[in-house]
Design a protein around this nucleic acid. Structure first.
Lengths: 329, 329
DNA sequence: TCAAAAGTGTTATCCTTACACCCATGT
DNA sequence: ACATGGGTGTAAGGATAACACTTTTGA
């Protein structure tokens, strides 16, 4: 098995189609946005996606190249998310089924360029996931979602199964003594998908036992599994801002503390304590003062900050969950 | 661009070969091991890798199926790592170059089964990365590595470049006021690769400016980019054990605190404080006491523990790096 | 009796959270 | 004057890291 011939691999690939898809994120003001591709006839949006071209040395270079040429967006930070290849991604080719593989990427851009191609739009990502925005209190949709989840738990066969379901619901949606976790975007979406609360379930292959009546209609749809890819991206980004200074990839060259806080809040879908936020950012040494102050805003003008580019990599990545290792020797 | 025809995608895939490769990990006693495929003629090992078959519904199912049939290992926890597809992975096909894509997976198994196929071996992963094991003090190789890194820093063109290089070296290898971070396995490997301190650089495409004389020869090689895949796996696992109870996927049904601690230490390549480790594990409620005690060991017999399967998902994932969100509303 | 490992307890320190309060500006 | 946002101080509580020390077994 060690020496698989290239022929085998190539033969296998004959039934394959691979593309790259990108969740392109920016923050305008206090809203997180993604670049969506509008389809003419279909109601559902799509993510930007393009072919895997072999002339680029790396996958990432290929992605950058076509996204930049197609959308006239200059990509900043880019990170591979996941490779999606489930069977329900198959499409029917000329005369046989073809497995679609899609390598998902997260890309951050600094500003929302005017939409110059007619079919691309910047959309607030909470349009697709209304239950993920807690900034103005608990989202209304969650009442209905929770009701459905409870009945799913109640429908379990045995007591063990019921416990497991209850546990999972509590963890995903922060019920009982567990808190809502902003990072569980994908787990939440997958739970909804699995139990048929989301239209995609019924579009893909509806299991007999779940009815389409209970579907949550709030939240815009996307084609194929693009909403799953988006959920993956949001989850990754929400996690990442907590231990790597990636927010700054979304900020203009100078910004105030409030700007920064609102950007983080937009991504996390949660509000933060003002003073604690400042202190944390300041203590990390991530920003430095430009001499200037902001103008034109409502209240007192604020100092304008700038990201300290020199601290690109360091950040001791604090907060490990294991006891500190023994020092030295 | 939104509506790419399937034809395009399929056409693009003609020049593609996709396979799955797996880093299969277990811990025996106090050593982390991976399943390596020995090659007959070549000196370098390979990771387990197999074709992407279309009969399975998910990629993961396909991986499990062929790994289990080929290696007679029953895989426990499985997680997708990354999709590797750089140009230097190209291979020459019948009469043209073919891009090799490889979807890397991390798989954890509970025990090292006797090696029943002649060409598979369990190997200590520190054979490939001797600089990653700090359990008995600072690894000896690091002296040489650090010397080379310093001279790379000194060789920088301008002052800015020099600072950036110094910064990067400090962050990756924990020099100056920055501590060694067990999780930066991949970043370290990539730095070594980039500046030609590792044989792979010269095998792939040696840049003129770096000489092969300085190469670090300690550490076993692997074919193609498999050592990079392994580095990715180790990094991911080291990170994951800190916030998800994945170590237990590597433990036998019952174990002592010491067993558990040694497993974690094996993975992290660092030693922990005994009492603090216990307290942390206990406080998380991850384990429960079986009535029994361990027998036959050197000192005083220890209580045998068991993983509490009921807490699969919860774990509030503490230690977020952002200020706590405002409560409720 | 000694070595080896299992356990228990305690302290200083730092980080996080949660408040309370004052400052500067435009309308 | 007051609303809006900028900015400082601080005290309580919790988690960590680092010690010191006792207990139980096998050889």
């Amino acid at each position: 098995m060690s020496v698989r011939t290239q022929q085998q691999a190539i033969a296998a690939s004959r039934e394959l189609a691979v593309d790259l898809s990108a969740v392109i994120v920016c923050v305008t003001g206090d809203q997180p946005q993604i670049l969506a591709i509008r389809s003419e006839n279909d109601a559902a949006d799509a993510l930007a996606s393009g072919p895997l071209e072999s002339r680029h040395r790396t996958l990432e270079a290929g992605l950058r190249s076509w996204v930049e040429s197609q959308t006239h967006q200059c990509l900043g930070y880019v990170e591979q998310l996941y490779t999606f290849g489930d069977r329900n991604r198959m499409v029917v080719g000329s005369n046989r089924r073809v497995r679609m593989l899609s390598i998902g990427y997260l890309a951050l851009v600094r500003e929302a360029r005017p939409e110059n191609t007619s079919n691309t739009v910047w959309r607030n990502w909470y349009q697709y996931f209304p239950w993920e925005d807690w900034r103005s209190g608990k989202p209304a949709v969650l009442a209905r979602i929770e009701r459905q989840l409870r009945s799913w738990v109640a429908d379990a066969e045995g007591a063990g199964d019921r416990r497991a379901r209850a546990e999972r619901v509590r963890a995903c949606f922060g019920l009982g003594n567990i808190r809502w976790s902003d990072e569980r975007v994908l787990e939440r979406y997958e739970l909804l998908y699995e139990i048929g609360l989301v239209p995609e379930t019924h579009r893909d292959r509806a299991p007999a036992w779940c009815s389409a009546d209970d579907v949550i209609k709030e939240g815009a749809l996307m084609i194929a599994d693009h909403r799953r890819v988006l959920a993956t991206a949001i989850a990754r980004l929400r996690g990442k801002i907590k231990y790597r200074p990636v927010v700054f990839e979304l900020m203009p060259p100078t910004f105030t503390f409030l700007n920064l806080q609102q950007a983080v809040e937009a991504l996390a879908g949660l509000l933060m304590h003002k003073s604690n936020f400042r202190r944390l950012v300041e203590s990390q040494g991530l920003v430095e003062d430009t001499g200037e102050v902001s103008a034109g805003a409502a209240g007192r003008p604020a100092r304008l900050l700038r990201y300290r580019h020199d601290i690109l990599l360091e950040r001791p990545v604090p907060g490990a969950r294991l006891p500190q290792a023994l020092r030295g020797k």
